[in-house]
Design a protein around this nucleic acid. Sequence first.
DNA 1: GGCCGTCAAGACGAT
DNA 2: ATCGTCTTGACGGCC
Length: 300
Amino acid sequence: MRFGYPCINLTIKNQHPSTFRLKSYSEKRFTETVENNLKHLLSILNFNKRNDIYFFRISSDVIPFASHPICDVDWSEVFKVELKEIGNFISKNNIRVSMHPDQFVILNSKSEDIVKNSIKELQYHCKLLDSMMLPSSAKIQIHVGGVYGDKSKAKKDFINNFNKLLEEGLKRRIVIENDDRSYSLQDCLDINLETGVPIVFDTFHHTCLNNGETFQQALSSFAKSWNYPTDGNPIIDYSSQSIGERKGKHAQTLDKSHFICMYKEFKNAIIEGHADLDIMLEIKDKEKSALLALKMIKGL
DNA sequence: GGCCGTCAAGACGAT
DNA sequence: ATCGTCTTGACGGCC
């Protein structure tokens, strides 16, 4: 079981991906930023390895404006050597990486332009992972999208667009995540049946929106959406409620007793045909909570 | 060197 | 109608 955290490391100062405003775009600015971001990515991966963290979500900001028309630099060629070096480090150390494009990726949008731009954004993520020579277990995680007042139609639109509009290489990397107010685990399972797309099981979202299944039933059904070993270990997003805040808001730091309780559930789950689960800790204080989680598990 | 309005992009619920 | 949230806060103009 690997444990990971998303995108930035707060311990290593000024070593996380930076971006800039569209109006300050220049080839020089772009190239310098990417060069730095790649260097920082490698140093975060080194930090993680030293601390036994073998799962990491790579920031979508590594290549700023990658899917924007303004970007005409052939970055995968310019940074071929660096990208391959990072990929080698990841593969050599058996690290799992994933990416999570932001909310603007809507594959089932009613607007053709939004779908088109979403695909461009996904292609960028895919190209980055491809350039690192990573296998299809390096996933790109997205939400299903909008509901538009008719969920069954919206699901069909997702299924059709996924099946018809995406290249095979891209399809193999995509995974969908259950969310906290529109698409439950069961909705994702319905989509999985028609597309084969694996499901990232977000346990926190599941407590906000579910269909009354037991936790063990949920774990077992989500894991079946993954093909092992081509998809890698099934991925879980873990978080807990930020106390005293609006329902659905992620915790600032790891809730120790809640985490241990969930960890035991993960351990008890019989994941048929799979080696293990990989757990992404979606906690605001990032590596701090990841390190704490590892320490607590060792103490069990 | 710190403050804070704003940032490429969507959807949705709360106010 | 506008704001906050999801997401990865943080860029950068201004004082």
